[in-house]
Design a protein around this nucleic acid. Sequence first.
DNA 1: GTCTATACTTTGATAGAC
DNA 2: GTCTATCAAAGTATAGAC
Lengths: 188, 188
Amino acid sequence: MSTRDRFIGVAAQLFSRHGYAGIGLKQIANSAEAPIGSLYHYFPGGKDELVAESIRHSGDGYLLLVESVLDNAPDLESGIRDCFHTAAEHLELSDYQDGCPIETVALEVASTNEPLRQVTSEIFETWIDRAAEHAHRHGLDSSTARTFGIAFITGLEGAFVLARTMRSPEPLIATGEHLCDALQARTT
Amino acid sequence: MSTRDRFIGVAAQLFSRHGYAGIGLKQIANSAEAPIGSLYHYFPGGKDELVAESIRHSGDGYLLLVESVLDNAPDLESGIRDCFHTAAEHLELSDYQDGCPIETVALEVASTNEPLRQVTSEIFETWIDRAAEHAHRHGLDSSTARTFGIAFITGLEGAFVLARTMRSPEPLIATGEHLCDALQARTT
DNA sequence: GTCTATACTTTGATAGAC
DNA sequence: GTCTATCAAAGTATAGAC
């Protein structure tokens, strides 16, 4: 793995856990076992360029993970349930550190850093589109599929906030169950 | 209004918009038009004490707002819908700055500041309890009411993240509609 | 109780030797 | 390309005059 890739991997994890303003470039360089001058060699745009690259990396990875869980399930409803249960497992295994990899940064930059807001916005929109397409493939009409896709992502994001804060899997499990109940009511 | 109250009001808004690490005590003192020495006179515990007082203040205020919207509606379903529409209005009027007043701080401190994590956790748990009680009063049995209360709060929190990031009311409206659909399916 | 001045640390970023 | 040294600014926190 190249030095540049190591920077991105380390930065993705640290920004995910501490947010944009909560971690410094020196600590990132330190964790990547490289001097800070090397960081600026690969990312001349400084912190914002590193953040943009890191969250795009995280966003792509998380999309792959969610889609593999959804695609490995026999139907839409159990796929949704599996997503929330998998998320709860990962969260507990990481001592309630690893929820959504871009959520803290998204909230921090939403009103303070327009270029980075656009990057996070594109990631969320991609997730919504893919979730809606998945629901549409499983029989929901386009309009209903988009509403459901949005509710899936907002439910997941909100459940991560509460689960990390309360150090409990309950918000994830309950939100997943509620989404499945709504699906079942609609398809029967 | 006392100097202390002015500190809390200003801090609540700035922490809400910029998060814990995104705003400094000097800027808070500056916005409150008071010197920083005065801030430490009222909050000898420093930044963490000010944050704790601020988000408790915000948490109480937001609970009052949500409960007044819920109680002024003729039934549970329209109360929920009103909450999401009211939230969307406030968000647009503030140029997508004012969503949940404690969410950014909650994510930032979840893995890095245990005393403050407990404060945010207590606030969310109070909100869930009150939402569940409201749903129970409107006919849902205790277990279903708790699941619904959690889904309501997680949906609201997640919708705030996406709405602020995408600068669009759609996540709030869609999540609200989805919750109402699920309610209607359950009560008919 | 109010305010000024400042100590000390860490931040993002840059210059320049090798 | 890699690394060291350093800058200016901002961070939290404190001391002490009034």
